[in-house]
């Protein structure tokens, strides 16, 4: 028994509530978390309320004022058909912030279920499902998503389900690893000796102990969901025109970039980057806070 770090365990008497408070408290004292969550909240507010306060209708074209540089009337300029970039950028948060969290939820729930089952039962169940998951993982996510979206045709529900299912193997892999560690602990054996059923052991005994890694995985996945969905929109298989969307806007306008019309893509680029970085700063801080 090494005594090098004997004191990481809190002394008896510290309540769990105090620990939970500790995590939240630590988070609120972490600058990177505060920055991340502020960015996320900003875009969430835009997603919900932007349509009611932006200066222009984001769908309204104005063929007399195409490709106008930023000015007092159009803060971020106008695009190729004269739509107000500022309005479209703010409202553009709506599509991505609807699809990405839903897709993350689908992926996390499905992945947790698969991970619990494969990790708990092991044996041939694990071998067969594990092999299938490995096949899924041997294809780049974006290509799998592309394949299914071509076959089924892009639509919002399809994108949610496809991205969710593409993420499920990744979540499942994390959950399975966590379950395998728990599986060998004696409390699982104790429950089996009491005659508890497999679903009970998985959901009541094991699940609470692997929630922290699932939460962390979920937040990390949210970042990648935004990444993936934005990329799909950019490729033309995600959000469909004329809905305001950052990835879509970049795809539509990067052709005119070389002509010097930088404002048509720069703000969408910055918006996408800021949202993803924000989510990841928050996710990483959460991971650190839970690991402490």
């Amino acid at each position: 028994m090494s005594e090098a770090l004997p004191l990481t365990e809190p002394a008896p008497g510290l309540a769990r509530e105090a620990r939970t408070r500790g995590v939240v408290g630590r988070l609120l004292r972490t600058p990177s978390f505060l920055i991340g969550i502020t960015i996320l909240l900003f875009w969430a507010v835009c997603a919900v309320f932007a349509p009611s306060f932006v200066p222009y209708d984001p769908y309204a074209d104005d063929l007399l004022n195409t490709l106008q540089p930023p000015s007092a009337e159009h803060w971020f300029g106008t695009d190729q058909i004269g739509r107000d970039v500022f309005s479209r950028v703010l409202v553009g948060a709506r599509a991505i912030l609807t699809i990405a969290p839903l897709a993350t939820l689908v992926g996390t729930v499905a992945g947790t279920a698969i991970g619990l089952i494969t990790g708990y039962f092991g044996g041939w169940v694990d071998a067969i499902i594990g092999r299938l998951l490995e096949v899924m993982l041997s294809l780049p996510l974006i290509i799998v998503a592309l394949l299914v979206l071509v076959a089924l045709g892009p639509s919002t529900p399809t994108v949610v389900v496809v991205v969710g299912l593409v993420f499920a193997p990744l979540v499942a892999r994390t959950v399975r690893a966590a379950v395998l560690t728990e599986r060998h602990l004696d409390y699982v054996a104790a429950a089996a000796v009491r005659g508890e059923s497999a679903p009970y052991i998985m959901s009541v005994e094991i699940l609470p102990n692997i929630t922290p890694p699932i939460i962390v995985e979920g937040t990390v996945r949210l970042g990648y969901a935004i990444f993936t969905i934005a990329s799909l929109s950019f490729l033309g298989f995600g959000v469909q025109p004329p809905t305001p969307d950052w990835g879509l806007a970049i795809a539509e306008n990067y052709g005119v970039l070389i002509g010097g019309f930088w404002w048509t893509v720069v703000f969408d680029t910055a918006a996408t980057a800021s949202l993803i970085v924000g989510v990841n700063l928050a996710a990483e801080s959460l991971q650190r806070a839970l690991a402490e």
């Binding site: 602990l185 004696d186 409390y187 054996a189 104790a190 102990n209």
Partner: peptide, 15 residues
């Protein structure tokens, strides 16, 4: 028929 395990840290569900 019941059991007492070696290591209570492992045998008691920590949550």
């Amino acid at each position: 028929l019941q059991i007492v395990f070696q290591n209570p840290d492992s045998a008691l569900n920590r949550s």
